[in-house]
């Protein structure tokens, strides 16, 4: 909030690479209505649950499945493999591609043109999320309260988690933290 002093020493990033690595979601994600329809197809059901259980029982199959999931979602959404996918509640714009990985909406640093605070030439992921969700009639989704990420799930398949309904408490409509604790209790 405050006006910091000027005169920061320039510390170049090693190797001249842009850091943090910017992510460019592409392709089908830009058609939100299609994404919401696909989301319906992927909703948990007994068949998917059986598949997910079988995958977890066979580590090599699960690894292969997870690799495919990573490949597909990385290409379309810039997926970071957090293992607790919130795409259906964020207009199919992945909040983990935000340099601050904010899951509850944009930070205060978005420029007047909608540019990211960290990558000014790139649109803020939450501006994208807002546009996509609103255009598909899902604008209210962004008001959902997103619980903190469980870092133990990173690198795991979010579909395997989702189909077994482990993601049911990722977000809530009310101020539900009072009844349901944000961090899952240790298994």
């Amino acid at each position: 909030m405050s006006v910091g002093s000027t005169g920061a020493p320039e510390v170049p990033a090693a190797g001249g690479e842009q850091w943090p690595r910017p992510i460019r979601p592409t392709g089908p994600a830009n058609n939100p209505r299609a994404m919401y329809r696909l989301g319906q197809v992927l909703l948990p059901n007994p068949a998917y649950r059986t598949v997910a259980r079988a995958l977890e029982a066979h580590p090599r199959a699960e690894a292969a499945f997870t690799a495919v999931e990573r490949r597909v979602k990385e290409r379309i959404f810039g997926c970071q493999m957090c293992g607790q996918c919130t795409l259906p509640a964020t207009g199919y714009a992945c909040p983990m591609t935000c340099p601050k990985q904010l899951r509850n909406g944009p930070c205060g640093g978005v420029s007047q043109t909608g540019g990211c605070e960290v990558f000014p030439d790139r649109q803020c992921v939450w501006v994208t999320a807002h546009d996509r969700a609103a255009s598909a009639g899902h604008g209210d989704d962004l008001a959902k309260l997103q619980r903190p990420v469980d870092y133990r799930e990173f690198g795991k398949s979010s579909w395997v988690n989702y189909w077994q309904c482990r993601d049911d408490d990722l977000w809530t409509d009310g101020d539900g933290l009072a009844r349901q604790y944000s961090v899952r209790p240790p298994a």
């Binding site: 990033a13 205060g108 903190p148 990420v149 944000s182």
Partner: peptide, 23 residues
Amino acid sequence: TGDHPRFGDHPDAKPVFDLDGVQ
């Protein structure tokens, strides 16, 4: 939530952002 460290005097720092401002 806080500003990203990239524009501060330690741009080489690890940005944490384990929680966001709402959380």
